[in-house]
């Protein structure tokens, strides 16, 4: 990793960080023992990232499933507090992410800073959605009969997310935050070429009161990990954001997803800097409608 102060002073050798996966709240290496070289935009070596295997993907799905009951059962307020805490923790490590994003995406410091700021604000945006989405997309239905009838959104379950390849951090946050804001749990396949900001995000999530397993982060070859997740029968939905430039892979994954009728969010061109709508949340919500009789009035009454 580049370290300008090291060059200037030549006093002290810096300590490299070993980048690890983030699964079930812990930081394992890939069970396969494999790593791959990650370079900056100009080809300079930055780090060796874990190259996840199919078994890593399986472990991540298990962790996400285990976390689902607790996370989806937490109050929306509680989830909002935790997402906001992520923003707070990120703010404190802003410089680190500016450096990592700058290196990963070949951005100037000021442009990288703008990206990181936008990513922090995106967490705040979704923190505010946790307890509002139900009022925006749910509500009482005026059925023609003596029934109370209410529709409410509920999280669909474990969502596999293929994160954007180019926007390694803002794009990543923009696809992960909406999935967990509504109570889903996520297995994320990072940008293949630029996984380091995503792996560092795991360190932020681990210190943000987010229960282990709610977000699981896998680096490696998209073409190896994503098909495993797309075919996994205990995954409920699939976000194909990161396949926007690979139509063949996107189609293959969508076909695999059909085996258990995963909800699939197809890849589309997205300006990650623009304010998002609600679509990345509603894509992974089910609607539950409850009927209940509301009485029909009196059964009797004195007739004399």
């Amino acid at each position: 990793m580049s370290d300008k102060s090291e060059k200037a002073e030549a006093v002290r050798l810096s300590v490299f960080k070993t980048y690890k996966l983030f699964v079930g709240g812990k930081f394992p290496r890939s069970e396969s023992g494999r790593v791959y070289e990650v370079t900056d935009a100009k080809g300079k070596w930055l780090a060796n990232a874990p190259q996840s295997s199919r078994k890593d993907a399986r472990d991540a799905v298990s962790a996400a499933r285990k976390a689902f009951a607790g996370w989806s059962g937490a109050t929306a307020y509680n989830r909002g507090q935790i997402l906001y805490r992520v923003a707070e923790m990120l703010e404190g490590r802003r410089e680190q992410f500016v450096r990592e994003v700058g290196e990963a995406e070949g951005l100037s410091k000021s442009k990288a800073a703008a990206v990181v700021d936008a990513a922090i604000d995106r967490w705040v945006w979704y923190a505010g959605w946790t307890d509002k989405i139900a009022q925006v997309v749910g509500g009482a239905n005026p059925v023609a009969g003596p029934y109370f009838n209410l529709s409410s959104p509920e999280p669909t379950g474990v969502v596999a997310v293929v994160a954007p390849q180019e926007s390694s951090f803002l794009g990543l946050v923009s696809v992960v935050a909406p999935v967990i804001a509504t109570g889903n749990t996520a297995v994320v396949v990072t940008s293949e070429r630029a996984p380091l900001p995503a792996l560092s995000l795991g360190e932020v999530l681990a210190t943000s009161d987010l229960p282990g397993g709610v977000v699981n982060i896998l680096s490696g070859r998209t073409s190896e990990v994503a098909p495993t997740l797309a075919a996994h029968m205990d995954v409920n939905a699939l976000d194909l954001a990161g396949t926007v430039d690979d139509a063949a892979l996107a189609k293959e994954l969508e076909i695999a997803a059909a085996d258990n009728l995963k909800r699939v969010l197809r890849p589309q061109a997205v300006d990650w800097a623009a304010e998002p709508g609600t679509d990345r949340m509603t894509a992974f919500l089910e609607t539950k409608t409850v009927w209940h009789p509301a009485g029909a009035g009196a059964a009797s009454g004195s007739a004399y």
């Binding site: 945006w125 505010g128 509002k132």
Partner: peptide, 18 residues
């Protein structure tokens, strides 16, 4: 505290409030 948290979240979502 909860009330401020809640309305904080609306400040940038008014377009979605109907």
């Amino acid at each position: 505290a909860a009330h401020f948290f809640y309305y904080a979240g609306w400040a940038d979502k008014l377009a979605h409030a109907g």
